[in-house]
Computed example of a mutant assay.
Amino acid sequence: MTDIADAPVAASAVDLFCGAGGLTAGLLAEGLPVAAGIDNDAACRFPYVTNNEVPFLERNVAEMTADELEELFTPEVPRILVGCAPCQPFSSYSSKRDDDRWALVERFADLICEVRPDIVSMENVPRLTKFENGSVLRNFVDRLREADYHVSADIVCAADYGVPQKRNRLVLLASRHGPIALEEPPVKVEEHVTVAQAIGDLAMIGAGETDPIDELHRSASLSPRNRDRIRAAKPGGTWRDWDEELVTDCHRAETGKSYPSVYGRMEWNKPAPTMTTQFYGFGNGRFGHPEQDRAISLREGAILQSFDKSYRFVPEGAKIHTKTVGRLIGNAVPVLLGRAIARSIICHMREHGIA
């Protein structure tokens, strides 16, 4: 995969729900200028600004007006509005309409119809296609089409775009200038980036330890019982491989038998599983290191989200709150998927003479 532009494109993007900046980093890497990032999570400010050098506005998108959004765009160039509305309301663990965050998709549609940017991109979990029998996504698409946008929406695997992770996401693109779609996957299945290729060269650390050279390369501690469990875990295996005395009570229950990946190890020769906001915990999924007796570190999780190894999430010397950093990393749009979105937008702009 190569950059399609030698110089920045004449355009102006605003990143709603920008988080730690994964999508913005992807846009910038392909030469697509970003005017601002917006998120109501104050913890996003440092990584977003420090790594991307783009202004950050701490604001609840639900309370933003069209006029405020208009002012953020650079005048007299094509305007691009991108965003990843919080996906937790649509996850398989929630899907509750009484979660106020689901309404942010509706607010996103409001702002698009009021501001009328040239191009729009939305990234979210595939389950959004089924939430409320698909009505939330269907209404979003219908509103954009009624506003004269051409819309495409596809469920893609991030590994097909170079991300070392089996992360399926819904990517929607819309344009007022003509049909638009995400580029065809550039990476074949047999060429997927593996866990070994992504994090195999990082320093060895133990559970509860931190690499003295990289403070983000730190792993959560393990209880004696969980240390025994990870030692019994096989890469790609399940808790069913363990001796009976190590099996948890929840797994013995009928409801726990359908979660074989919990307390699992990753495999060196395959992409990682989806990074959640709790990837740093061995008991939260298949987040055990393939070889070392520990959960993957915060840095390893960030790399598996295709962030650069030098991407900073906290100021130097500041206390690292694992839960906060884990949330920032797990919620991010993988940078390489962001680059694919950017390339698709730039190609579309050139095809329609607006780049």
Rank of each mutant, 00 (worst) to 15 (best):
T2S: 12
I4M: 13
A7T: 13
P8F: 12
A13F: 01
T24C: 13
T50C: 02
N51E: 03
N52Q: 04
F56A: 08
N60D: 15
T65H: 13
D67S: 09
L69K: 03
L69P: 04
L72V: 10
F73I: 10
C84R: 09
C84F: 09
A85L: 05
P86V: 09
F90H: 06
Y93M: 10
D98S: 15
W102D: 06
L104T: 15
V105Q: 04
I112G: 05
I112C: 08
C113A: 10
C113F: 02
R116Q: 14
V125M: 09
F131S: 00
E132K: 15
V136M: 10
D142C: 00
C157R: 12
D160Q: 04
V163P: 03
K166F: 10
R169T: 11
V171P: 01
L172F: 05
L172H: 02
R176Y: 02
G178I: 09
I180G: 02
P185I: 03
V189F: 01
V189G: 00
I205Q: 07
T210P: 06
P212A: 12
E215W: 07
A220T: 10
S223P: 10
I230H: 08
R231M: 15
A233I: 01
K234I: 15
G237I: 13
G237C: 13
D241T: 08
E245Q: 13
T248N: 10
D249Y: 07
H251N: 08
A253P: 02
A253T: 09
T255G: 09
G256L: 01
S258C: 10
S261A: 14
M266H: 11
K270W: 09
T274A: 14
Y280I: 06
G281F: 12
R286F: 06
G288Q: 04
E291W: 03
R299Q: 12
D308A: 15
S310R: 14
E316M: 08
A318I: 07
V325I: 13
R327C: 06
L328S: 14
L337S: 08
A342W: 08
A342C: 14
A342S: 12
A342I: 01
S344A: 15
I354K: 14
I354T: 08
